[in-house]
Simulated assay, not measured.
Amino acid sequence: MKINPYLMFNGNCEAAFKFYEKCLGSKIVMLMTHKDAPSAENVPAGWHDKIMHVCLHLGDCLLMGSDSPSGYFETPQDFYVQISVDEPIEAEHVFHALAENGKVKMPIEQTFWAIRFGMLVDQFGTPWMVNCEQAA
């Protein structure tokens, strides 16, 4: 069993996932707009280029998302997407890349449980934790 986060956006899903692809050094493996779907004729013209579904490959997990239909988007709250990395330098790089034009909630630093840990909300409103645990 796996858990893969599914993020919803207010019309800027494609920009967010291209940003995540760059920040996380990963690859978008699937991207479908509403105009690509069999039901495209039922979608308002302004939504044809909005994302129906996108998948970003991250190791053995996927980060997925889409644009919420008009009137359905709610600002994310009370959760974080947590990323575990093996090396402190990688944690620093990922944290600072995701923090670009976002808001740092807790600067990345050493804690009693991790060599590096930090929290932020990115420029698209997605909350992230970056964690690099200490060696056992």
Rank of each mutant, 00 (worst) to 15 (best):
M1N: 00
P5D: 14
P5G: 13
M8C: 11
F9K: 09
G11F: 08
N12S: 12
C13W: 10
E14V: 10
A15S: 14
K18N: 13
Y20G: 03
C23L: 09
C23Y: 06
L24R: 13
K27I: 06
I28A: 05
I28M: 10
M30I: 03
T33D: 04
H34Y: 11
H34I: 06
H34S: 05
S39L: 09
N42S: 12
P44K: 05
W47M: 14
W47N: 12
D49P: 03
D49I: 00
K50N: 11
C55N: 12
L58P: 01
G59H: 09
D60A: 00
D60R: 05
C61N: 13
L63F: 02
M64G: 05
S68H: 07
S70G: 07
T75Q: 12
Q77H: 04
Q77G: 02
D78M: 07
F79W: 01
I83T: 02
I83Q: 03
P88W: 07
I89S: 15
A91E: 00
E92H: 13
E92K: 14
V94C: 01
F95N: 00
F95Y: 11
H96C: 03
L98D: 00
A99G: 09
N101L: 07
K103S: 12
K105R: 11
P107W: 09
I108Q: 08
T111V: 04
T111F: 00
T111P: 01
F112E: 04
F112P: 01
I115N: 05
R116G: 03
L120C: 14
D122M: 04
Q123P: 04
G125A: 01
G125Y: 07
V130Q: 08
V130I: 14
N131K: 00
Q134V: 06
A136M: 08
